[in-house]
């Protein structure tokens, strides 16, 4: 007997395709936030399917902190070229030069928070009315209550206490002048789903996700990779470790995990056995209990 059931990955894929097409249909000037991390790569992969054989009808937007892993930028440029996509880059350095943002100082300085300024300025400059992000509800507790279509006021702020109810698959994109939406097509995916899908679809991933040897320091349990953006504090030293990254942000705040997993299969088995969340290694989330919510309210990703 023929079975009319999609498996979980195909159902998630179908849901994400639907959401991405809704964005293209309901908004005038959407863009897809592309960080070069696994979630945005998967989101882009699905966007390509959603409009095939036409090109993806919106540009990719990358907010460049200037503190990227070189691997990320190379991967980004390569993919953009392969797809013939349009890429818009907002530079945090420009925001600093213009005096729109002030660089943090000290050994733990990060440009993580500054990205919000650059992001909101770029949205305004290009007149984007919807940005698709790879955020997932399983990632972090403030994201667990996020909508697929998430409204932002004209200051780019999120009001978590006052979100529009979202029912069935009917999305309300109405907004006033100057307001915009953040849309999360991968809302219902987990870290495991993402990796399983990458394996199923054989999607190319940046080498940072696979086990390799790298000089790192251990700062309160967070392993930071050696770069000009991370300065040694007292008692710290660089050590060669066998690591991989579970999440990729900028070099100043993304922690590595010690891991021998060098293939997709091994990563999936590792994720299945993991006892720490992937963002557990993110220094940016550790600043306070509600660090993510506070940044999101201001207009963060």
């Amino acid at each position: 007997m023929q079975s009319y059931n999609l498996n979980h990955l195909r159902e998630l894929e179908a849901e994400s395709m639907f959401v991405i097409r809704e964005v293209a249909a309901q908004f005038e000037k959407p863009a897809l936030l592309f960080s070069g991390g696994k979630d945005s790569i998967v989101m882009l992969h699905i966007a390509v399917k959603a409009f095939h054989p036409a090109r993806v009808p919106f540009p990719l937007l990358h907010i460049d902190t200037g503190h990227n892993f070189p691997e990320t930028l190379a991967f980004r440029d390569n993919l953009v070229k392969k797809l013939g996509a349009r890429l818009v880059v907002g530079y945090v350095q420009e925001s600093i030069n213009k005096g729109r943002a002030v660089e943090e100082t000290g050994p733990q300085a990060s440009r993580n928070i500054l990205q919000t300024v650059t992001l909101l300025d770029t949205i305004e400059e290009h007149g984007f009315d919807a940005l698709m992000g790879g955020g997932r509800r399983d990632e972090e507790k403030a994201r667990a209550k996020e909508r697929f279509f998430s409204h932002r006021d004209d200051f780019g702020q999120w009001d978590p206490k006052n979100q529009r109810p979202e029912l069935w698959n009917i999305f309300n994109s109405r907004k006033k002048m100057g307001e915009h939406f953040r849309v999360f097509p991968l809302s219902n995916w987990t870290e495991m789903d993402v990796w399983q899908y990458v394996l199923l679809e054989n999607i190319e991933m940046p080498s940072l996700y696979f086990s390799h040897y790298r000089e790192c320091l251990n700062r309160k349990g967070t392993l930071l990779a050696r770069s000009e953006y991370v300065k040694l504090m007292e008692g710290e030293k660089w050590e060669k470790m066998r690591i991989r990254f579970r999440t990729i942000g900028d070099m100043s705040c993304t922690g590595a995990t010690v891991s021998p997993a060098s293939s997709l299969e091994e990563i999936i088995l590792e994720v299945a056995a993991a006892r720490q969340t992937e963002r557990g290694s993110r220094a940016d989330d550790k600043r306070s209990e509600t660090a993510m919510e506070d940044r999101k309210k201001e207009g963060y990703f």
Partner: peptide, 10 residues
């Protein structure tokens, strides 16, 4: 508290 993630909820 696992999912009462919002500041106001806490």
């Amino acid at each position: 508290l696992l999912t009462d993630g919002l500041r106001a909820e806490r």
